[in-house]
Design a protein around this nucleic acid. Structure first.
Lengths: 132, 132
DNA sequence: TTACGTGCAAAAAATTTGCAGTTTC
DNA sequence: GAAACTGCAAATTTTTTGCACGTAA
């Protein structure tokens, strides 16, 4: 446990979620300007392998980068608005059931699941249809 | 409708799915060696915007590239085995219900959904536990 | 013909690797 | 003290952009 890792983990935990590697690095630099971007990538890889963070794409609304968030108690779905870019999270019992179904029907032992939807959020539906 | 686009679309349709940009380009080159990789990216972008292909990550089992497949009648889930790399597809009524729930509960108009799970397929569970 | 698409070259963005030196336990 | 981790520099991989020319409708 190096102080670099402690710092990165603390930032990820504290963040409301959805940090990409670059933002994580920038925030880390405020505390430790010597911390290298490579260390960010290596640490993220590690946390991912240990299942401590989830990697997201958020439908690649802007470029091909990845987003990271601390693994929550309960899995949730990400809804990305293709119009305003807002990301909402959604928990659902049906989602839990779906995971159960996959594990049973296919005898597939799930380690990580990712559900992402792209579409129009409530606000943007009205603004798009009204031409606003 | 240029002949380059026709060719690329034909390859995507014919493929069993899960082509990355590079493979698509390589296959296209067999038919038309002058077809440029840039055209592949531009065409994929277009097809994606029109909702004719889905973009997948397949849990980034190998690098950060993206995979593409022709949009099917019915959405399906991708299961990626972290041990052998095999990809299975899974259709489920529960998944359809989950989409309905999202649209109703959040009044979110879904344009694309992606469900990907990483874990161990049936075969790999036994080989891993037995040390094979 | 005219708007749109393509190839080429080059750039940008995102991520990975090799290696030597430095920490952590 | 040994194994693991870091920074630096450089390389890879994946994708995007500018621009002049070519092509489909």
């Amino acid at each position: 446990m190096t102080h670099q890792r402690k710092l990165l983990v603390a930032i990820i935990q504290a963040a409301d979620g959805h940090l990409d590697a670059l933002s994580l690095w920038q925030r880390a630099q405020e505390q430790d300007p010597t911390l290298n971007k490579v260390t960010v990538y290596r640490t993220l890889g590690l946390l991912k392998r240990y299942g401590l963070v989830d990697e997201l794409d958020l439908m690649h609304l802007e470029g091909g980068k990845h987003y990271y968030e601390a693994k929550a108690q309960r899995d949730h779905i990400h809804l990305a608005c293709t119009h305003c870019g807002r990301i909402q999270e959604f928990e659902s019992l049906l989602f839990e059931k779906l995971k159960g179904q996959i594990e049973r029907d296919r005898r597939f032992r799930i380690q990580v699941v990712r559900v992402e939807a792209g579409g129009l959020c409530e606000q943007c539906q009205s603004s798009v249809t009204s031409g606003r």
